[in-house]
């Protein structure tokens, strides 16, 4: 019991030394340890925080850029599709047009050729008729010669025959 009392009685010397040691311990550490340590920890935390924030921002930027890229790409693809489609259409159109024109041209040429042929044929026919007429007159004159004295009567006869021929031929 006596010993317990001595345990629970603070000694002046211990109080003095504890106060002195604790104040010195506090002053030295506060100035040379806690301040730099807490500042360093705080600075590091702030840097970590700002780094994380900028990383987050960069990620968002990236996402946005990616979305932009996607959109641009999609647009480009559409454009290409359109251009190709236009080209295809134009080609189709050109081909059809060319074909139409060509067939038209061909039709015209055929038509022209046909009329030409018709005309040539008619011309040839009339030439042939003339030829035949003069030939027949010659032949007939040679054949008949002497038998035909009156020229005007002969002419009449011949043209009568030729007419008959002509109508027969037609």
């Amino acid at each position: 019991m006596i010993l317990a009392t001595s345990l629970a009685t603070p000694q002046i010397g211990t109080v003095f030394w504890t106060t002195l040691v604790f104040i010195l311990f506090f002053l030295v550490l506060a100035k040379f340890a806690w301040k730099p340590i807490l500042n360093a920890v705080k600075a590091r935390e702030e840097i970590i925080k700002s780094s994380l924030e900028s990383a987050e921002k960069a990620r968002e930027d990236m996402k946005r850029l990616q979305a932009d890229n996607e959109a641009i790409l999609r647009k480009a693809r559409e454009e290409r599709e359109n251009i190709l489609k236009d080209a295809r259409d134009a080609r189709e159109k050109m081909i059809t047009e060319a074909r139409d024109k060509a067939s038209e041209e061909a039709g015209k040429m055929i038509e022209k050729a046909r009329t030409e042929i018709e005309r040539e044929k008619l011309k040839a026919l009339s030439e042939i008729q003339d030829q035949v007429a003069s030939l027949s007159v010659e032949i007939a004159s040679k054949l008949l010669g002497e038998h035909l004295k009156k020229d005007d009567e002969q002419e009449k006869l011949i043209s009568k025959y030729l007419k008959e021929l002509g109508t027969n031929n037609n």
Partner: peptide, 30 residues
């Protein structure tokens, strides 16, 4: 009045010195 460096005071001085060395080194490493 007894201001002796008793066992408790000596132990406390040693602990405080250890603490000082430890945290001054720590501050320097920072």
């Amino acid at each position: 009045l007894d201001f002796s460096i008793t066992k408790a005071v000596a132990g406390m001085l040693f602990a405080a010195l250890t603490g000082l060395i430890l945290f001054l080194l720590l501050a320097r490493s920072y």
